[in-house]
């Protein structure tokens, strides 16, 4: 077991940031913490990287206890915090050399591990970190988190605010790191990224909603979901919400995802209702649940 989290709780005053969290991450696994801002993801990262003490519970990382063996953990893990935390007025290369040196290694020794990522920013190695674009900062931060060849990598929302193209490239990099045997715990508010993890924990308000593989999580969705579309989306949402038998109504891209309270739901009945309410070009079709559907269903309870 690479990361073992056992009934961890943490509160700040009256706010329960983490409420009895237990997660086990296997060696070499790419594990995702999926949840919105304020879910408690960062607090958990800080506890696992020995920067914060839990109120209750215990945890170990790479076989070391987060309290008794905190110094050992710091040598074994790489941590990329959510906020850019490199030295803005050191250059790209100086930052990397600095992190290599404090971990007692050199860039050359572990260059192999970061080559893929670092080559993309190497042309700018004499530029100050503060002057880099968002995407380049992210690559530099990842290089710095990897330069001491950690066994476990913690990435706190590495793709927040990053465009879809750079996000996709970033996840491809993570997959390659995973292939090298590194255990990765990564958090994200983007539900579509969840599908790229081996297993995920859905987390909201400090509580775990569910832990499983992305595939199993969508299969657990309890109800049939229907894509509903019409000529006027705003009117459609209004009318679906006013429908007596609705269970949930959520916009999903081109269509609205609709679920009904009843077991024997007949789409033709809904179509007749919408038609009567003045909607045109009505489209109703069975569709598959996504991780986001599951998240919202669980978060509603």
């Amino acid at each position: 077991m690479s990361i073992r989290i056992d009934h961890i709780s943490k509160s700040y005053g009256k706010v329960n940031a983490l409420d009895d969290i237990s997660i086990q991450v296997h060696q070499g696994e790419l594990f995702g913490l999926i949840g919105p801002d304020g879910a408690g993801k960062t607090t958990l990262f800080r506890i696992l990287t020995t920067l914060l003490l839990p109120d209750q519970g215990s945890a170990s990382v790479a076989g070391y206890d987060i309290i008794a063996d905190f110094k050992a953990i710091r040598k074994q893990v790489g941590y990329m915090p959510g906020r850019f935390s490199l030295y803005q007025d050191l250059t790209v290369e100086e930052n990397l050399r600095f992190f290599a040196t404090i971990f007692g290694t050199t860039i050359a020794e572990n260059y192999d591990l970061i080559r893929d990522i670092y080559v993309q920013i190497e042309p700018f190695k004499n530029r100050r970190a503060g002057k880099l674009s968002g995407g380049m900062k992210q690559k530099l931060a990842l290089s710095c988190a990897l330069i001491h060849k950690p066994k476990v990598l913690f990435l706190d929302e590495p793709t927040t605010g990053v465009d879809p193209v750079s996000r996709k490239e970033f996840w491809e990099m993570l997959k390659r790191l995973q292939d090298k045997g590194i255990t990765i715990l990564v958090s994200t508010p983007y539900m579509d990224e969840a599908a790229l993890c081996d297993r995920i924990a859905l987390i909201q308000d400090g509580r775990i909603l569910e832990i499983d593989t992305p595939k199993a999580i969508v299969e657990h969705y309890p109800k049939p979901i229907f894509d509903v579309g019409a000529h006027n989306t705003y009117l459609l949402i209004e009318k679906l919400n006013a429908y007596a038998h609705k269970h949930s109504v959520f916009p999903f891209g081109e269509y609205i995802h609709y679920t009904d309270q009843r077991d024997g739901f007949d789409p033709l009945e809904l179509r007749a209702y919408l038609k009567k309410e003045g909607l045109q070009n009505i489209h109703i079709e069975r569709t598959k649940a996504t991780i986001e559907d599951t998240f919202m269903e669980l978060a509603k309870q």
Partner: peptide, 18 residues
């Protein structure tokens, strides 16, 4: 809506539609 939870994100868009 960056970082906002999925339910609130949709409520936000309903406000936009309105």
């Amino acid at each position: 809506t960056g970082g906002v939870d999925p339910i609130t994100r949709r409520q936000f868009w309903e406000m936009i539609y309105k």
